[in-house]
C-alpha cells in the first residue's frame, strides 16, 4: 500500500515538476525531440543509401574470363561451379558471340576485326548476382572465390566504383556516428541543465522533505522520473515530426529521386521498430540527463 502510494506520489511530483517550470522543460523536450528527429531522419537516409548501394551492386555485372584453351565441356563445368557459388543467373558468352558484340560496339571500326587471323577473345561467363550478395563486401568475397576456380583467368565487377561507393557509405556511417555522439552528449547536457534549474527551484521543498524524514531515494526519484517524462515527450514529438515529414515530403522526394535511389525510397519513415527505438532512445536521453543532474547537483 505504502509502495503504491509512494509510486503515485513520485509520478504526481514529476508531472507537477513539468507543470511548475513549463518553459524550462519545453527547452529540454524540444532538444530531445530535435535530436531524435535528426536521428530518425539519418536512419531513413541510411536506409536509402543502403538501397542505393544494393541496387548499384546489382547493376554491376560480374564478368568471368575463361582460359582460351577450355573446351565446351570444361566451360560447362565452370558454369556449373559459378552457379553453385553465386546462386545467381549465369550466361555463357562463347568467343564468337563476344567477337560479334565487340564488332557491333566498335561500329565502322569493327570491320578491322575481320582481318584478324583468329578470334583472340576467350569465352566469358556473365553473372547477375542475387540480391543477397550485392553488397560491396559480398561482391569482393565472391570475386575472390571465382578467381580461385580452375579455368578462370580474370574477374571484373567494376571493383573501383563499388569500392568508392562503399568508402563513401563508410564515411557517411562514421560521420553519422560522430554526429550522433555529439548530439546525444549535448542533449544530455541540456537536459541535465534544465533539471538543475528544476532542482534549484525546488530547493526549499527538498530541504523540508529531508527535515521531515525523506530518504535520499525519495527526494531523487521524482527528478529521475521528470527526466524520463521529458525523454518520452521528446520522443513522441520526434515521432510526430517524422510521420508528418513522411506524409508531406516523402512522396515528393520519392518521385524526385526514384531514378537514382531505386526501391525503398518510398518506405514509411515511421515503422514499429522506429517507434520502439526512438521511445527507448528518448527514455535513455531523459534518464541520462536526470542522472547527471541528480548526481551532480542534488546534494541531499
Amino acid at each position: 500500500m505504502s509502495v503504491l502510494s509512494k509510486a503515485a506520489y513520485f509520478w504526481r511530483s514529476a508531472a507537477g515538476g513539468l507543470k511548475h517550470a513549463p518553459f524550462v522543460h519545453f527547452i529540454a523536450v524540444s532538444t530531445i525531440a530535435i535530436a531524435l528527429f535528426a536521428a530518425g531522419l539519418a536512419r531513413g537516409a541510411s536506409h536509402v543509401v543502403d538501397n542505393l548501394l544494393a541496387s548499384l551492386g546489382g547493376e554491376v555485372e560480374v564478368t568471368i574470363y575463361l582460359a582460351p584453351q577450355l573446351g565446351q565441356d570444361e566451360v560447362h563445368g565452370v558454369h556449373t561451379r559459378v552457379v553453385e557459388l553465386s546462386h545467381g543467373e549465369v550466361t555463357v558468352v562463347p568467343p564468337e558471340a563476344a567477337l560479334l558484340r565487340l564488332k557491333h560496339e566498335l561500329g565502322d571500326l569493327g570491320e578491322a576485326l575481320s582481318e584478324l587471323p583468329e578470334n583472340p577473345l576467350p569465352a566469358t561467363l556473365e553473372l547477375r548476382v542475387p540480391e543477397a550478395r550485392r553488397s560491396p563486401a559480398a561482391l569482393q568475397t565472391l570475386a575472390k572465390e571465382l578467381r580461385a576456380l580452375p579455368g578462370v583467368t580474370g574477374v571484373d565487377y567494376g571493383e573501383a566504383a563499388v569500392e568508392r561507393l562503399s568508402a563513401i557509405a563508410r564515411a557517411l556511417s562514421f560521420g553519422a556516428l560522430v554526429a550522433l555522439v555529439v548530439v546525444l552528449g549535448t542533449t544530455i547536457v541540456i537536459v541535465a541543465a534544465t533539471l538543475q534549474l528544476a532542482i534549484y527551484a525546488r530547493r526549499e521543498e527538498i530541504e523540508i522533505q529531508k527535515l521531515v524524514g525523506a530518504t535520499d531515494r525519495f527526494v531523487k526519484t521524482p527528478f529521475l522520473l521528470e527526466g524520463l517524462l521529458q525523454g518520452l515527450l521528446g520522443a513522441l514529438v520526434a515521432l510526430g515530426g517524422l510521420w508528418l515529414f513522411g506524409r508531406l515530403l516523402g512522396p515528393t522526394l520519392g518521385s524526385l529521386f526514384a531514378f537514382i535511389l531505386g526501391p525503398g525510397v518510398n518506405a514509411p519513415w515511421v515503422e514499429t521498430r522506429t517507434v520502439v527505438e526512438l521511445l527507448a532512445a528518448g527514455c535513455a536521453l531523459g534518464l541520462g540527463g536526470s542522472f547527471v543532474a541528480v548526481g551532480r547537483f542534488l546534494r541531499v
Binding site: 500500500m1 505504502s2 509502495v3 503504491l4 502510494s5 509512494k6 503515485a8 506520489y9 526549499e204 521543498e205 530541504e207 523540508i208 522533505q209 527535515l211 521531515v212 524524514g213 525523506a214 525519495f218
Partner: peptide
C-alpha cells in the same frame, strides 16, 4: 516556518505524510 508558499495549507501539512507513503 519553512512553509511552501505555492502549496495549500493542507498540502503543506500533508507533506510529511507523502514522505511516509500514507495513502491519499
Amino acid at each position: 516556518f519553512k512553509l511552501l508558499p505555492h502549496r495549500s495549507v493542507a498540502d503543506n501539512v500533508g507533506f510529511t505524510l507523502d514522505v511516509l507513503g500514507v495513502p491519499r
